[in-house]
């Protein structure tokens, strides 16, 4: 059993669960967005951790020109996917924060319980 993969996987999973706990128990919209960010970081860490194996080198040809190059690299595909995931997560977080600013302007509150439809004055 590969210990590092186990630790990375379990740690990433608990990061996701901390984010989920934050999303479930808080009513402040800003904290909900923070919780979503934590969950997303956990997922990214899980995917990157899946590509790890002991002794794997970073997949850059300049570092291992001399040895049998291809077989000594870590898997590049999950890293490329996580790059996409990080950028989209940035966009989602930014859009959620913009929505939060609008919510604060229209209803004077960012609590999801106190915010009611009738308070929105057109």
């Amino acid at each position: 059993m590969n210990n590092t993969i186990f630790i990375l996987g379990v740690g990433a999973f608990f990061l996701m669960m901390i984010g989920l706990y934050g999303v479930l128990t808080n009513r402040n919209v800003f904290r909900l967005i923070l919780g979503l960010g934590l969950m997303e970081t956990g997922v990214n860490l899980f995917i990157v951790g899946a590509s790890y194996w002991k002794g794997g080198k970073p997949p850059i040809l300049g570092t291992v020109f001399e040895t049998k190059a291809v077989d000594s690299y870590a898997d590049p595909v999950p890293q490329a996917l996580v790059l996409t995931s990080i950028v989209i997560g940035l966009g989602v977080t930014a859009l959620a924060l913009a929505l939060m600013v609008r919510l604060k302007e229209t209803t004077k509150s960012i609590d999801i319980i106190e915010t009611k439809e009738e308070e929105v004055n057109e």
């Binding site: 950028v87 966009g91 859009l95 609008r102």
Partner: peptide, 19 residues
Amino acid sequence: TLGEVTVLFAAIAGIGLLL
């Protein structure tokens, strides 16, 4: 990656629309 850049563009355009 083209789709990813488009998603980022859409998010920023949405921010501009909202704020």
